[in-house]
Design a protein around this nucleic acid. Structure first.
Lengths: 337, 337
DNA sequence: ATTCAATCTGCAATCGATTGCATTCTGTGG
DNA sequence: CCACAGAATGCAATCGATTGCAGATTGAAT
């Protein structure tokens, strides 16, 4: 790399002291320096193509303008929108997101967390539903700023930004009930995820309320394979198979599609399926998936907002923000046979 | 944040000079210090929970162990696998990726590029097909290390890592030809993308070779909407509509699905469709999409490898790496009516 | 015992920007 | 014409780690 211009070069060219250059080029301190000088410094800076070295600045100010974002897996389609939401709030404010994938592995998570701390990130956004609990507690005790997105805080006093899962499950069940379904199964994600528990509890509660006979089948992961396996289990064991399945997320629902197909059952004619999240292209599946849309982009943006609010204003922030969800009815639900 | 331990604290506790601590804790310089001292320093470091401040290190060594990754849009499903591939190579080597989205906007791209330069990234991975040309040229002249992924280098002597697009198009056409298709249309992406041009040229060449009557319809973006619009155009204008469509990517193919459906045509019975990329869940579309699988994860990993090779060894690297692609036949192709 | 080489460690400069404090300069009022 | 407030700028320490160089220590060889 050809050596970049430093603040000293600009100072030399503008005929002022480096300190003055620093002040002239900085929003907050600009008022401390003579307007004429500011112009001269700006010109010099432009002429030399000067851009501040943010590592040096970071060292002095002990802030990196960087946020660590910890997600399980970027290729899980709900995360890109969340990340973009985060970025949409951070970027205009000069912050960048450092995104890491844990693949659901706690050791990896801890390792990556430490490496981000080393990089002096100014705060964290945790999107890992899984455990992480101990880590979050520890982070909190270390005085690290953070926000949870798409999961609850699990007792740690970090703010959490979540979709209204209970409401989503309710909407799904009311929709199915309205179509005439009275036997519904729920594919619930791993109980270590807070979202799984919230959804499963809402499912049980609403079924009881509506008088729907219910069945809850746990899965080991929010994956297509597990959805398929769990649906296999339902179809092969139940004496009276359910007429509809509410899946904990769209991937599980997709697995249910696969299982139904392999069992020679049609969706929605024989069994209705409802997903959760409205992942990209959910409307292009076979059949187009009825699902609960969670506002992932907004969840991300809001979590970034809360975090920056903490960091820049040391402001107290809401401990929980719940964003509304919406049932998107497509073609995977129909009256029971 | 409770103030972190610095190298000086460790030095104090271990009863040695900070310089010695630095050497003791560093792989490459560890041999310069007495093994006994190393142990003492290590113990002291552990006791204090010391982790080096990588900003300070970065300032001194003028390297940030950070790579800038410039992509158009993370929510475009081909990018997450690329990013994960990049990360899979970087992370074990202590590097992190700083990912930014341009949304295809040149001004945004330039802005983000500069902000990453400011952050002292050690190199760039460009995944933006669009123009970027001028930017890449400029970056090269500034002595900045970079690699192109999923696009050619457009004359700039940066290495490029791409899939074998021509071979993929050939495979698609041979498949269609074998099914009996003799009139095939191609939905080509924006000509500013190198991938569009390569695919369109291969399409023309192979059609000529096989004696297929061809038609090429340009689109303004690799999007579902544009795919639909272009397909509308084909269906509404051609006197003799094609019996198959080869789309420039899966999104365009999805748009073709929509258009066909709205025109009362069935896929694959009336018109076959082939996509490109094999994006996640392409097999779950309606109908399951026949498409060319590009090895996105590997493209990402390989591009990271080339970049680090440049950075760490200043080694000359291959200027072009072409990875094989594979036609995945599913249910969107069938013999012509 | 002396010299010399090899090891190990300390010293201090350095990376580039920020910032509290001191100093200089300006214009105003007495 | 002097004093002085206030603005503008300069000075130098600082952030935390790295590293070339020099000094100290050790042991071996003569």
């Amino acid at each position: 790399m050809s050596t970049r211009a430093t603040i000293a070069d600009v100072a030399l060219l503008a005929g002022v002291h480096p300190g003055t250059v620093s002040r002239a080029l900085n929003q907050k301190t600009e008022s401390q320096v003579n307007p004429g000088t500011v112009v001269r410094v700006r010109r010099a800076a432009k002429q030399l193509g000067y851009t501040p070295n943010s590592i040096a600045r970071g060292l002095r100010t002990s802030s990196s303008l960087t946020i660590g974002v910890i997600i399980p897996d970027l290729t899980n389609p709900i995360f890109p929108p969340i990340v973009r939401g985060i970025d949409s709030y951070l970027a205009p404010r000069g912050y960048s997101a450092l995104i890491v994938n844990t693949d659901g592995n706690d050791d990896t998570e801890r390792l990556l967390f430490e490496s981000l701390v080393q990089r002096q990130v100014d705060g964290f956004i945790f999107a890992t539903g899984h455990s992480g609990h101990a880590l979050a507690t520890e982070a909190y005790e270390r005085g690290i700023r953070a926000v949870m997105v798409n999961r609850d805080s699990g007792g740690v006093p970090y703010p959490a930004v979540v979709g209204d899962d209970a409401q989503g499950i309710r909407a799904a069940l009311v929709h199915l009930f309205g179509l005439g379904h009275r036997r519904v199964a729920h594919l619930t994600g791993p109980p270590t995820f807070s979202t799984s528990r919230v959804r499963a509890e809402a499912f049980a509660a609403v079924c009881a309320e509506l008088g729907i006979s219910s069945e809850v089948v746990p899965t080991a992961a929010y994956s297509v394979d597990e959805g398929q396996r769990a649906t296999d289990q339902i179809l092969e064991s139940s004496s009276r198979a359910p007429t509809a399945i509410v899946a904990g997320n769209d991937l599980l629902a997709l697995g249910a599609y696969h299982s139904l197909r392999l069992h020679g059952l049609r969706c929605p004619e024989d069994v209705s399926v409802v997903g959760f999240n409205d992942m990209p292209f959910a409307g292009d599946f076979q059949p187009a998936m009825t699902t609960v849309r969670a506002p992932h982009f907004e969840l991300g943006a809001e979590s970034a907002r809360l975090l920056l609010n903490q960091i820049e204003n040391s402001a107290l922030t809401a401990l929980k923000v719940v964003l509304p969800v919406q049932l998107i009815v497509r073609s995977s639900t129909a009256p029971p046979p």
